[in-house]
Each structure stands twice: as structure tokens, then as C-alpha cells.
Amino acid sequence: MRKKLLLVALFLILATAVLSSAVLAEGRIAIVFATGGLGDQSFNDMAFKGIKAAREEYGISFDAAEPTSISEYETYLTQFSALNRYDLIISIGFDQADALNTVSQRYPQQKYAIVDAVVKQDNVASYVYEEKQRGFLMGAAAAMMTTRTKDEKINPAKVIGVIGGMKIPLIDENIAGYIAGAEYIDPEVKVIHSYVGGWADPAKGKELAKAMIEQRADVIWGAAGRSGLGVLKAAAENNIYGIGADSNQNHVAPEHVLTNGMKFVNHTVKRAVKQVIENNFKPGVHVLGIEEQGLGYTESLLPAEIIKKLEKIKNKIAAGEIKIPATIEAARK
């Protein structure tokens, strides 16, 4: 009797293992990156990091596309959808919203996720961020740094800058937070801002940063995808501080990257995959902020006393004790 029970138990264990393996093996994902492409050392690379982490942890396989223009989004999304083989198709970037809105209606049984935009369809999970929170942290850090007197990279002018990739609501929300964060630290700090007009133009990013440096800015944040790499290069060449975006970009300009405004797209992509693999897909809008560990910063070159103050600010933001404007107009009042 005992031998028979052991055999039954062994069979159940093996069956469970095989079933678990089969579930993981079924996981097939498609991901369409933003036009900045892989190698941007920013938004796309973080997404790629997330899908690779999902492959390692959940055993999924994935196919990817790298569009070079917005007009290609709908084509790639349609091609992936028509194959009817993917458990989830992920769009990376706000400018895929229109294409995904169109394609998701054509394929109502297909599950989709989009990062950095909202698509209001029953088969789409939209992941967006409290951008103003990240901007506030970066503005506070920059303002605290520009008021330091004993640093060769800092001048007495108390001017900081921020360069956005494009003039769109999510970037303006970052800039609004940056202005408000600086104001929170020192109302005398002057904040200047500008836009590259694209996500893959480091040369233009560098040019705009140099123009700010001529206005005596000594800390500049490049919230501009691949274009932001030019901002960091300008910081290194002119011996000021740059601030990276989305991922840890310390290596781009060693000894000149003050901190990085982190957007944990990797965690978001992995979260979206996990929900599908566990049959827990949740369409609708998912808002991620500091409290949800969707946003943050790196310590990098930040002095210990500034890190200490930033942590207090971060906790206050998470607790709702600091109200941050969402528009540049509101932040400038």
C-alpha cells in the first residue's frame, strides 16, 4: 500500500513539473521598440533588459521589431497580431498609441501592453508613470548641487537646465517637476529648458546643452532618449554636471553624471509579461510612481548630504505630502 502511495505521489510530482514546464514554454511575446532603437542606453535598452529578464525567469521566448519611423508601428503590430501566436504584444513608447489603438480593435482577442501611453481598449494594458515625481527629484538634486560653492564644476550663477526630447505632455510633466523641485530647494535658482525635437539626435542634444552652458548652467538633465547622450557629452567636455535619464548612464560621461532620473521600464515590461504568464492579464491604466518603484534615481556623484535630503523628499512625495504641478505653466507661477 505504501509503495503504491509513493508511486502515485511521484507521478503527481512529475506531472506537475511537466505541466509547469509546458505553461512556461507556451509563453511567447512580441515587443515593438520605440524609434530611438536599441543602443540608446536609455528607454529602449531598459525595455530590452526587462524582456530578457522575463525570458530568464519565466522561460518565455520573444520576437522583437525596431521601427525607424512612426509610420512603421502599425505595420509591425499588424504583422505580429496576424500570426496569432503571441500571448502578449508590447508597444514601447508614447508615439505607438495611435497605431496600437487601430490594430488592437482589429484583433480583439489579442492581448497588448503599451508603456508610456494610454490606449483605451478592452484588450490593452497601459502603463504610465508619474513623470512629475521623477522631475521633482531631479530638479531638487540639481538645485542643491548648483548652490554648492566648493566644487570646480559649479559656478556662482545658480542656473540649471533640462532638455526634453519632444514637446509632449509626458516630457512637459518632467520639466514641470524639475522646475518645481528646484523651486522647493531654492527659489533663486534659475531653470532653463528646451527641446531636441526627436529621440535619436545626440548632436542636437549636445548643441542645446552647450547653449545652456553659455548661459552659465552647471547642471543639465537630458530627458531625451538617445538625444540625451549628447547632453552628457557636452557636460563632460565643458566640465559641468549632466543628469542621465531612464537608465544608469554613468559610463557615458564618467565623473560628470551627477545622477540619473530612473524610469524602471525593465520592471514594467517584466510585470506585464508576468501577469499574462500567470493568466492575470489586467487591461486598463496602470500608473506607476515612486511608491510603486516605477521611478527613482541613482546615487552616482551625489554628495551624501544631498542623498539624505533626496530620500526625505522621496518619502514625502510617496506619502502625498508634496504636491507637484503637472504643467510648465503651473510650475512657473
Rank of each mutant, 00 (worst) to 15 (best):
R85I: 12
A141L: 07
A82W: 12
A54Q: 03
R2M: 12
A30P: 02
L88W: 05
E26A: 14
K190W: 06
S21D: 11
S300F: 05
A211P: 02
K312L: 11
G181A: 00
Q41C: 11
K316I: 06
A97M: 08
I243P: 03
T146D: 02
L83C: 09
G261T: 00
E57I: 08
G93W: 05
R134L: 14
Y58C: 04
A319K: 15
A141N: 04
I163G: 05
Q79I: 10
F11H: 00
K150P: 02
A176R: 00
V287H: 10
I324W: 10
Q109I: 07
S247H: 05
I307K: 15
D218V: 10
L295Q: 04
E311Y: 09
K120Y: 07
L310N: 09
E329S: 10
L229H: 05
L19Y: 14
K263I: 03
L5C: 10
Q41S: 13
V287W: 08
M262P: 03
E237D: 15
V118A: 06
G296N: 08
L137I: 14
T35L: 11
N155E: 13
S91Y: 04
L6A: 14
I290V: 15
I213H: 08
A319Q: 15
P202E: 03
G93A: 13
V276P: 01
Q249F: 10
G244T: 09
D95M: 15
E173P: 00
K167C: 10
I317C: 06
A318I: 02
V285C: 00
I306D: 06
N250E: 13
F281T: 00
Y129L: 13
V269D: 01
V265W: 02
S194F: 07
D186V: 12
A224Y: 07
I322K: 08
I175Q: 03
E292H: 14
E255L: 12
E299G: 06
N250I: 09
I13M: 14
G289H: 06
P325Q: 08
R134Y: 13
F48E: 08
I29W: 00
A82Y: 14
T327N: 12
M138L: 02
S104Q: 03
Y127D: 03
I89D: 01
I70S: 11
V269E: 05
V103P: 01
T16Y: 15
E311F: 03
Y73Q: 05
I220A: 06
G39A: 11
T298C: 04
R332A: 15
S126P: 01
M138A: 13
A217P: 07
N174Q: 14
L38I: 12
A224M: 11
K190D: 11
L6G: 04
G59R: 01
A331Q: 02
W221V: 08
I179D: 07
T16Q: 14
Q96G: 09
A272K: 02
E130Y: 00
E305G: 03
P156L: 09
I243Y: 00
F11S: 15
D201W: 01
L232S: 09
V23F: 10
A117Y: 00
V269S: 04
V159D: 05
K3S: 12
A180T: 10
I322Q: 07
